[in-house]
């Protein structure tokens, strides 16, 4: 069985930094939204949780920017096969469904990346605006707007990420190892990422 590499060690490390910082941000964010005082058992106090949230935001932002090199080029290549993939529901609507050949990321993964990138940048920019209060003519207006943006982006992410986790684990056996060892069997890749496999010369 031929094994091929799909993710580099750095890509894997960065993915888990992104995921870990996201979990910290999302949990503390939920704490702020719903006044979850139970979280004091984890963070100690809301004062500590605020600092953790803010500095985890720094890590998240840095990690998100690094993903651009890994996923943006392929995600921007959106063609007829991607549209056809969506029209077929990604093959997830029935056991027998067949989908057109996909690139290194399938159409759904491309869309997911674009959603994470845009909402991630929006949540970071708005978070920093609230945190650091830049010198602007009307800071109250900027904070009200940032609060809105921060929360819209959060809603998008809190829906997208669980679906991503499901699709990367239970729904697609054999996918998770990409973010552990970075490799997949050639046969597996041919079925799911035919265009990519062809492009890299197999």
């Amino acid at each position: 069985m031929t094994i091929i590499r799909k993710a580099s060690a750095f890509e894997i490390l960065n993915h888990w930094v992104l995921a870990a910082s996201f979990f910290i941000l999302a949990i503390s964010g939920f704490g702020f939204l719903f006044h979850l005082e139970q979280l004091n058992a984890v963070f100690g106090s809301f004062n500590v949780m605020k600092d953790v949230h803010n500095y985890a935001g720094l890590v998240f932002t840095a990690s998100l920017i690094l993903t651009i090199f890994h996923y943006l080029p392929v995600s921007l290549k959106f063609g007829a096969d991607d549209i056809a993939w969506f029209l077929k529901g990604g093959g997830y609507l029935s056991k027998k469904a067949k989908v057109p050949p996909q690139d290194e990321l399938n159409a759904g993964q491309k869309l997911y990346y674009i959603v994470i990138l845009l909402s991630g940048l929006a949540i970071a920019a708005s978070g920093f605006a609230v945190w650091l209060r830049p010198q602007v003519p009307d800071i109250r207006k900027l904070v009200v707007l940032s609060h809105l943006v921060h929360n819209i982006a959060f809603d998008l992410m809190i829906i997208a990420v669980p679906l991503h986790i499901y699709l990367a684990t239970l729904a697609n056996p054999g996918t998770l190892r990409i973010m552990i060892t970075g490799t997949v069997p050639l046969e597996w890749a041919k079925k799911r990422h035919a265009k990519w496999v062809q492009r890299i010369g197999y």
């Binding site: 997830y92 609507l93 056991k95 729904a171 056996p173 597996w188």
Partner: peptide, 13 residues
Amino acid sequence: YLVIGPKKDEGGE
């Protein structure tokens, strides 16, 4: 997961 279930590749894994 319960209704449709995971994608199984015959011979994949």
